[in-house]
Design a protein around this nucleic acid. Structure first.
Length: 115
DNA sequence: ACTCTGACCAGCC
DNA sequence: GGGCTGGCCAGAG
C-alpha cells in the first residue's frame, strides 16, 4: 500500500511476527496489533499485500476454517503452504483449538526441515 | 454525504 | 454443529 496508516503498519508488524507452523485468526492478529475488534482491517491488509510479502496463509478464520472458498486457487495454495509447515488441514480447517490457543502451537515445535 | 460491500467476529437461539 | 443479528470501518461508486 502506497500510504499505509499507523494501524496498517501495526497489523503488518503483527503478521511478520508469526512463526513457522503458527496459525492464528484474523481477530487474533488484530488483537496482537493492539487493534481488538478490527479483524476486517487485517483482511483488507492481506488482500492488498503481495502474496510473497506476508505470511497470509498462517491466518485463518476464528473457527479454524480457511477464509477462501473451498477448491479455489487461493484455498489450495493455502493448504499446500500450511502442510509444508507441518500444519495439518482437513476438510478445509485446522483444529479450532490450534487457532484459539495459538500460543500452544508454538510449543508443538514445528518440523525443522526448512529454515 | 450516503449506500454497498467485505480474505471478520461474538453473542444468541 | 448451523443460522441470524449487530458490530466493526475503510474503499468504491
Amino acid at each position: 500500500m502506497a500510504n499505509p496508516s499507523a494501524n496498517e503498519i501495526a497489523i503488518v508488524a503483527a503478521l511478520r511476527r508469526l512463526k513457522r507452523g503458527e496459525v492464528v485468526a484474523y481477530g487474533e492478529v488484530a488483537r496482537r496489533a493492539g487493534l481488538p475488534g478490527r479483524a476486517r482491517l487485517v483482511a483488507r491488509v492481506l488482500a492488498h499485500a503481495s502474496v510473497d510479502d506476508l505470511p497470509w496463509y498462517r491466518v485463518l478464520r476464528a473457527d479454524g476454517r480457511i477464509a477462501f472458498a473451498p477448491g479455489s486457487a487461493e484455498f489450495v495454495e493455502q493448504v499446500r503452504r500450511l502442510h509444508a509447515e507441518g500444519v495439518s488441514v482437513s476438510d478445509g480447517r485446522v483444529g479450532t483449538a490450534l487457532v484459539r490457543n495459538s500460543l500452544d502451537a508454538l510449543l508443538w515445535a514445528p518440523p525443522p526441515s526448512a529454515g
